[in-house]
């Protein structure tokens, strides 16, 4: 960890520790509290510099939506989450995971050109982002820009990506890494659900491969959610993700390195290594059941 990041990250904890040590009518139990507050600086550090200096990226739900379409699977209107679910969310975790779910659904309906559903999903996202106080990431102007780009799905996916990145930046700037990780978790679980929703997925080699390729992403997600789970709010979610992780670990994957080729004039490198994934229909069914369990937990 860098000195500057340590300094910035520790500042709030230091302030709390100093306040606690000021006395101010504090009792013996307050002193115990002071110790707790001091220990609390550890997750704050990870908020700024990542876990042991590591950062984890979760693939955009738009990539899953594109993969579903490119694999030739049919669009299924009924597989997205009910849009009234967001209204009943009262905790920040429930709101954040549902925001991630709707974000993944919006990519899915966008890629499949379901214009009406795009707008209603965006409205649901706007309501949830207001509850989560995500600044201006999903405001009325975004809605207008969406309406102005309805015929261009890549523009819509780009607008959505910019809005979610803006929300993520806002959350991380305001030390709400836990909320950021819940949004990502909701989005990833919903993407898995959408990839598995069509029974034809289990027979589609492209989709089987894409599902198997999520091993490392799931590890990353468990790390992300786990590192900010200081109050145990995400225990059930983490348990579900870890259970799913055991199923993904059983899939046979192989990687073969091949040298990459760089074209400096085009500022492009061609990465030629190859990964293969082998999964049986039973293994895919097992994964689908575990994804459904986690999704039910989020939608409950």
């Amino acid at each position: 960890m860098t000195a500057s990041s340590r300094f910035l990250a520790l500042a709030p904890g230091l302030v709390l520790l100093l306040l606690a040590s000021c006395g101010g009518g504090g009792s013996q139990s307050d002193a115990v509290g002071a110790d707790t507050l001091a220990t609390d600086t550890t997750p704050k550090e990870t908020e700024l510099i990542g876990l042991g200096g590591q950062f984890f990226s979760i693939p955009s739900p738009a990539q899953a939506a594109i993969a579903i379409k490119e694999a030739g699977l049919n669009y299924q209107q009924g597989v997205t989450a009910p849009l009234d679910k967001g209204d009943a969310r009262t905790t920040r975790m429930a709101q954040a995971t549902m925001l991630g779910v709707y974000g993944a659904d919006m990519s899915y309906v966008t890629v499949h050109k379901d214009v009406k559903r795009v707008l209603t999903t965006l409205e649901a996202i706007e309501k949830l982002s207001a509850k989560l106080e995500l600044g201006n990431a999903f405001d009325r102007s975004l809605m207008e820009r969406f309406k102005g780009n309805m015929g261009n799905e890549d523009s819509l996916l780009r607008l959505s990506g910019i809005a979610f990145r803006s929300a993520d930046q806002y959350l991380k700037t305001n030390e709400a890494e836990d909320v950021s990780s819940w949004v990502l978790a909701g989005g990833w679980v919903e993407s898995m659900h959408l990839m598995l929703a069509d029974p034809a997925s289990a027979q589609n080699q492209k989709m089987v491969a894409r599902i198997g390729e999520q091993k490392r992403t799931l590890d990353a997600l468990i790390n992300l959610v786990g590192q900010s789970n200081t109050d145990g709010q995400a225990d059930a979610l983490l348990a579900g993700l870890r259970e799913l992780g055991t199923s993904l670990q059983h899939l046979k994957t192989a990687y073969v390195y091949e040298p990459s080729v760089t074209d400096a004039a085009k500022k492009t490198t061609y990465i030629n290594g190859r990964t293969t994934v082998d999964a049986s229909a039973e293994q895919i069914a097992d994964i689908a059941a575990k994804v459904a369990t986690i999704r039910n937990l989020i939608l409950a």
Partner: peptide
């Protein structure tokens, strides 16, 4: 299409993210 995430680290000297 942006991936929807923002990554930042505060670095000093030869430290690495």
């Amino acid at each position: 299409i942006p991936d929807g995430q923002f990554y930042r680290a505060l670095l000093q000297g030869e430290e690495m993210a």
